[in-house]
């Protein structure tokens, strides 16, 4: 049972101090979660702390590999709008 951090992590440090299990560590190219230590905050908090403070959609995955904060869930930007804006910028 463990969450994981993937490459979209921006190394902002927010998650590290809030982890009750000291499972998060600084690593290159991005922070990682020690699977042996991660409890998903079970018994400590109602929601996993790292995923509750992480500002990057999709950067933290649950044990099944699904994004805990899917696109649009934190910024409020509908994914279609984001795609359209990025496509428009690429086309310039």
């Amino acid at each position: 049972m463990s969450l994981s951090i993937i490459e979209s992590c921006v190394n902002c440090w927010a998650c590290l101090p809030v982890c009750p299990s000291n499972a998060i560590y600084e690593a290159k190219p991005h922070f990682k979660i020690d699977a042996a230590k991660c409890t998903e905050c079970d018994g400590d908090f109602a929601q996993p702390q790292c995923a509750s403070i992480c500002p990057i959609e999709g950067a933290i995955l649950d044990q099944l590999g699904a994004a805990i904060n899917p696109p649009g869930s934190l910024t409020g930007i509908p994914p279609s709008m984001m795609e359209a804006a990025m496509a428009e910028i690429r086309a310039r």
């Binding site: 979209s8 902002c12 440090w13 927010a14 101090p17 403070i53 500002p55 934190l74 910024t75 409020g76």
Partner: peptide
Amino acid sequence: PACNIQCHYCNRK
């Protein structure tokens, strides 16, 4: 680097 809120004019990425 860490932040405790999100503002609509900021993007941490």
